[in-house]
Amino acid sequence: MEKLIRDTRLALGSKGKPLSQTRFGELVGVSQVGVSRWESGEDAPTEKNLLKLIEIEPAFAKFLPSRAINLPVYTMVSAGALSAAETVLDAHLDELRRIPVAGLRNGDYFILQVEGDSMNKIAPDTSFIVVDRADRELVPGKDYIFMHDGRATFKRYRARPMRLEPYSHNPEHDPIELDGLEGVSVVGRVVKVFLDL
């Protein structure tokens, strides 16, 4: 981190002169001595300092500590055929149990419990999945919650041919072909799996 702090300060200079430690400190809310201690590795920026540094240089975001976010736990989502989805969209948030989950980037997350074995290579029956509602862009080989006609399922997306594919040890599960199936929407991408909460 010391090198990134120094390089950032030097890059902010003008007319061939580096920005002084005093002026850089004013930008991020610390003294010249504080900047000097950061650059020598004697001290490190606080989380508040890091948020200021990120405004100047986004690369500092990697140094932010991982925060736990309390996510709502809905009931079930089918990992088999499309099935009723009122629990995915219509539950009352204030009535739901919440579980802290760390290591998530910015997003709109919630937790579902898996029902069925069509995705059991990554999420066995009764396991829990973290879904990011803010990530709906389909990427082949990634896992999502899909909805169609008021029903939902947890599946892997494949592009050629377009289909929702099981990822299971059970060979009886068939993919859901998307050609000719209108009105399929993406609720969000599955980003984490927990066997138990």
Rank of each mutant, 00 (worst) to 15 (best):
I69L: 11
I69T: 11
P72V: 04
P72S: 08
T75P: 11
V77K: 01
V77I: 14
V77Q: 08
S78A: 13
A81K: 02
A84M: 03
A85P: 02
L89R: 06
D90H: 02
L93R: 13
L96N: 10
R97S: 12
R98I: 11
I99N: 07
I99R: 09
V101G: 11
V101M: 03
A102G: 14
L104H: 04
L104S: 10
R105F: 06
D108H: 04
D108C: 01
D108T: 01
I111A: 07
V114G: 00
E115K: 14
E115Y: 12
D117V: 05
S118V: 07
M119R: 00
N120G: 08
N120M: 03
I122S: 06
I122P: 02
I122D: 08
A123R: 00
T126V: 00
F128E: 00
V130W: 05
E137F: 10
L138Q: 11
M147K: 08
M147R: 09
G150N: 14
R151E: 13
A152I: 05
A152P: 11
R156D: 04
A159W: 01
A159S: 07
R160L: 11
M162G: 01
M162D: 12
E165G: 08
E165Q: 15
Y167D: 13
Y167L: 15
S168V: 09
H169R: 14
P171N: 10
P171I: 12
